[in-house]
Structure formats: structure tokens, C-alpha cells
Design a binder for these strands. Structure first.
Length: 517
RNA sequence: GGUCUCAUCGUCUAACGGUUAGGACGCCAGGUUCUCAUCCUGGCAAUCCGGGUUCGAUUCCCGGUGAGAUCACCA
């Protein structure tokens, strides 16, 4: 089912990096919009100047782009309802605030902070919950913009339907007079998000569970403004890896972009986040982003919180790495394709005529970024692409993260350090005498020197070596593998030797023989 | 404390009121001529407790318990 009128938004405040919890909220809103063939909006809620952190907006944009969550309207690209940054829209909020004043639904708060504190303490000693409206001034002064402006609520019970939680109820005690414009002139979230959602025709508001208890206040405001409310959908928390708390920055929630650096695929992260609190009812675990768009629905979103399980993310990452074509994976590990979505931009030809100073700058920045995402070991720097691809094919199944590539492949490019303890610590090899080792290595070198060194020939040679030496593979193959790679593990021996090449393989075996004397 | 929400293996989850409560991650064991990984096979492991409704309850109702959220001139 598609509904082109579906408009969802992700509306973060620019208070730092984006963590997985926020990313999942963004993802679900994006999936809903994509599924309905609607629009996805990126709005910045920067009304708390005190908490703002410089560079956050760029960071959020970078994070969303990495995940491939593209937006149709937003702070950086504009759109029919620009600006998409709340600090640019103060006049709009003031206009709607004045409307509320005119209708007798908002008033200036005349109390000082001390007086307010006093009221709170009064309520506390009476063991009653504090409600500002019980202290509502009878004749509030005219609002001159220096006092906070409060919404005059109409306490009542509400029953409403949440697209995820189902039917929800609250009593009148959940509703109070809340501040809509602060004394610094900025609106509060409680007020301006409602105005913006209305003006921007947002059809579905998806947000995390912490907002569920303030929803009755929003409902009261919708009523006062006489606006139709959007579909409300409450997403369960993503819980921290340890403890029973919602995932937050202080509990070690990581920057979503850290996962990029650690070698996670955006598709794996998206798959992981989507199935954290949602499933399609089948036993499918691995989804492409396109499948998620097709299958996503709010009514299958879980009501209870889900724990962030890095093991599962790691597994999914492996699944997605293996599902990639060799060419695609090759581009990604070389830093040529940041994500499926932005790859198009990278492929855009840059004409030589326009290569002035600006595009030079752009080029160097692009280069920097791609170096950031080059997962090959430094030793691979001067190796040609064909060779790298051969090596990648051997290790693709072995990668849990792209970052594993460097440690898994270094010995293909650089001479490994001889570490004889790998032989003496080996259960089978430690039984061999020095001479036996030398003889085995020498026999191997002799036979291999006659091989054509394609993968199949090497295997044939290895098989005949088993016969010649009378050793089991556990001895002979282990010895050759270690002598050539000096790595704790490596791909199949014939493939490894073949890719390393005849000359290098033989010289490494001969180095091992020399080291043995 | 008031208000609100949630509750199936360790974790993510499936199950028109009828299943030996299913799958996946992880873990353990075995297999694939060395190692590591992949892949395959098998194993361990759960309906928070107590009432009710019903022929029958993981599922519906009530009450506990537990966990979480929120009660800001934060979002």
C-alpha cells in the first residue's frame, strides 16, 4: 500500500553525535516514508542554545548519509516549507503563540524561579504532585517577551491510539500548564514541534518512548490549536548493552559513525537496527534495505524495549559482507564507495574545465575521506587492483568487519616476521626434529618449484608432496602454511600460495630453512 | 511519591485460545584433506507469580511482582 501523502521527519537536536538509538528512530521514520512512497524530512530542533554542540548538524547529516537514509526536504537542501531549522523560525512560533494569547490559551508566567521552587516544595510537603496550574496567576501581566509564556491547559482525560502501543489512556493529572516560549525568546520543543509538524504537513510522528508521558500535553495543545493530529507512533527504547537503561551517551552509546570506522556495512547496520524492535513475522533474519522498505509496518513494531546486541550486529555484518559481489566489496574496502546512496555522487564526472581552486579543495577532501575508509593494510599501497581483488576473494568469507582485512592480508603484501614459536608451539610440528623440518621444507620447495602455481597446480603438487613425504596434511600443510605466511591462520593453502606467487613463496620457504639452522 | 508503559530461551524474536512453545545470535559438540572463517548436522536453553474466564490460556480479565520512562525556562 502506498500513500504519497505520507510525510515523516527526523528531528534531532544538534547536541552532539548521533547514536544508535537516534539512528533507529530515523530509520523507522524513513522506512515508513519510503514504504508509502512519501517524503522524509530532516528538521533541526535547535531551540536550546545552551546545549548546542558545534558541528553537530554536519555530523548528523554525515551519519544519515552513511546509513543511506536520504531526505527529500531538510536543513541542508531546503524544500517547500523551509527553513528546516527551528532557530530560523522564531517569528512563526511567536505568531502562533500570539494566537493562543488572543484566544485566552496562553499567558505570561509572572513568577520568579524562587517562587516556583517554593510552590514545588509546598506540593512536596503536602505529598501531592506539583501542578503549575494550581498556582495559575489570576491576573497575569501582559506578555512582553521577557517572561516565559505558558500554555493554559484544559485538564481532561484522553484516550488515543498509538500506531505501535495501541490504545493509551491518561487522566487530567497528566496535563499541566507548560512553557511554550522561554524567556530567551526561543520556543520549547513541546510547542514548536507541534507547529512545525502541522505546517510541514507531517503525517506520522515517530519518536522514542520517553515522549509517551508528555503526549497528553501535546494532545491538549492540538485541541487548543484546533489542528488535526498526525499519526502518533511510539518506538520502544533501545537498551544499553549492560544494565536496564535506555541507551544513552553516558552509558557508552557509540557514535554511529564509529561503526563505519570499525568496518561495519551500512546495510548491516540498517538491517540490525530495523530488526531491533521490528520483525516481519517470518523467520527471515537478513534483509536488504529494499526488502525492509517493502515489508516494514508500524503494527509489527515491538512494544517492549530491545537490547543492543553487538554479537548479532557482528553476525549480520558478516552476512552482508558475504552477500556482496567481489566488485562491490572491493570498491567499499578501497574507500571508493562510502554507501550505496552517496556512491552516485562519487561517480559523477568532474569536468576538467571546472577544476579551479574549489574543486581541488573538494578533491583533497574526498581523498581524505576515502583514505579514512581504505581498509587495506598500508603494505598494500602499491599493489595493483587485480591482485588485491584476488586476495579479497580469498578472505571475503573470513571478514566479520572490513577492518579485519588489514590483519588478515598483511602477509600477502609484506614479508612476514619469522616467529619460530608458531612451530614449537604447534602440537604436531613440535614433535619434528630440526632436520626433519628442514627436509620437509626442502622437499616442498623442490616440488613447488616445478609447479605452474595456479591454484589447481599447487593443489596437485601439495597432494603429491603428501605421498612423497608420507606426512599427514596436519604436519606438512601446517608447516608450509606457517613458513610462507607466519600468520595464525590463512585461507586454503593452495590458494594462498598461488596468490603469493611462486617466487615469493619459494623465497619464504628458503628463509624458513635458513632460520632453522 | 503521582502518572504512564512494558514482561516468551543469556540476547533479538515467532506462535486466529488448541504446537513436543518455532526461528536467529551467542555458547557447546561433530563434519568439510593444515589453521582461521564460511557452510552443514546435532545439543543446551524460555512463556515473572497468583487468581479467574474456558473443555483448553504464552495468548483474554483481575491482582501482585519486576523493569523502565516521565514529572525542566532539555529535547
Amino acid at each position: 500500500m502506498t500513500d504519497k501523502n505520507t510525510r515523516t521527519r527526523f528531528a534531532p537536536s544538534p547536541t552532539g553525535f548521533m547514536h544508535v538509538g537516534a539512528a533507529r528512530t530515523a530509520l523507522f521514520a524513513w522506512l515508513q516514508a519510503k514504504k508509502d512512497d512519501g517524503k522524509f524530512i530532516l528538521r533541526i530542533e535547535d531551540t536550546d542554545k545552551g546545549r548546542e554542540v558545534g558541528g553537530s548538524i554536519e555530523h548528523i547529516i554525515k551519519s544519515l548519509k552513511w546509513l543511506g537514509l536520504s531526505w527529500d526536504e531538510g536543513v541542508d537542501i531546503g524544500g517547500p516549507y523551509a527553513s528546516y531549522k527551528q532557530s530560523d523560525r522564531l517569528d512563526i512560533y511567536r505568531h502562533w503563540a500570539e494566537k493562543l494569547i488572543a484566544n485566552g490559551r496562553a499567558y505570561a508566567d509572572p513568577y520568579s524561579k524562587e517562587q516556583l521552587e517554593d510552590f514545588r516544595n509546598q506540593a512536596k510537603t503536602q505529598k501531592k504532585p506539583f501542578l503549575y496550574r494550581e498556582f495559575r496567576p489570576e491576573n497575569p501581566p501582559a506578555w512582553d517577551g521577557t517572561q516565559p509564556l505558558r500554555f493554559k491547559s484544559e485538564p481532561k482525560s484522553y484516550t488515543w491510539t498509538d500506531a505501535v502501543m495501541g490504545e493509551l489512556h491518561t487522566g487530567p493529572e497528566a496535563i499541566d500548564d507548560f512553557i511554550i516560549i522561554k524567556s530567551d525568546g526561543y520556543p520549547t520543543y513541546n510547542f514548536c514541534h507541534i507547529i512545525d509538524d502541522m505546517l510541514m504537513n507531517v503525517s506520522h510522528v515517530l519518536r522514542s518512548q520517553e515522549f509517551i508521558s508528555s503526549t497528553p500535553k501535546f494532545l491538549n495543545l492540538y485541541d487548543a490549536l484546533q489542528i488535526e493530529r498526525p499519526v502518533l507512533a511510539t518506538l520502544p527504547y533501545v537498551m544499553a548493552i549492560n544494565g536496564n537503561k535506555k541507551l544513552g551517551k553516558r552509558d557508552g552509546a557509540k557514535d554511529i559513525l564509529d561503526y563505519q570506522k570499525e568496518g561495519y556495512l551500512p546495510e548491516a547496520m540498517v538491517n540490525f537496527l530495523a530488526t531491533l524492535g521490528w520483525n516481519d513475522g517470518t523467520e527471515q533474519e537478513v534483509f536488504t534495505t529494499a526488502e525492509l522498505i517493502e515489508k516494514f509496518s508500524l503494527d509489527r513494531v515491538q512494544k517492549s524495549p530491545a537490547r543492543f546486541d553487538e554479537q548479532r550486529l557482528l553476525w549480520l555484518n558478516g552476512q552482508h559482507i558475504r552477500a556482496l559481489s567481489l566488485d562491490a566489496l572491493s570498491n567499499i574496502v578501497s574507500g571508493k564507495s562510502v554507501s550505496a546512496d552517496s556512491s552516485l555522487e562519487h561517480l559523477q564526472p568532474k569536468s576538467d574545465q571546472t577544476s579551479g581552486l574549489l574543486s581541488d579543495l573538494e578533491r583533497s577532501r574526498d581523498k581524505e575521506e576515502s583514505d579514512d575508509n581504505d581498509f587495506w593494510p598500508l603494505s598494500a599501497k602499491n599493489t595493483d587492483e587485480t591482485k588485491k581483488k584476488q586476495i579479497l576473494a580469498l578472505v571475503q568469507d573470513r571478514l566479520k568487519t572490513l577492518a579485519d582485512l588489514a590483519t588478515l592480508t598483511d602477509y600477502f603484501f609484506a614479508e612476514p616476521d619469522i616467529n619460530w614459536s608458531m612451530i614449537t608451539d604447534n602440537k604436531q610440528l613440535s614433535k619434528l626434529s630440526k632436520d626433519e623440518i628442514t627436509n620437509l621444507l626442502q622437499a616442498s620447495a623442490d616440488e613447488l618449484s616445478k609447479s605452474d602455481f595456479d591454484s589447481e597446480s599447487v593443489q596437485n603438487t601439495l597432494n603429491s608432496l603428501l605421498e612423497i613425504t608420507g606426512q599427514p596434511p596436519g604436519v606438512l600443510f601446517s608447516l608450509i602454511r606457517i613458513a610462507v605466511s607466519w600468520a595464525p591462520f590463512s585461507p586454503a593453502l593452495n590458494d594462498t600460495l598461488s596468490v603469493i606467487g611462486k617466487e615469493t613463496s619459494l623465497s619464504r620457504i628458503s628463509s624458513a630453512i635458513q632460520a632453522n639452522v
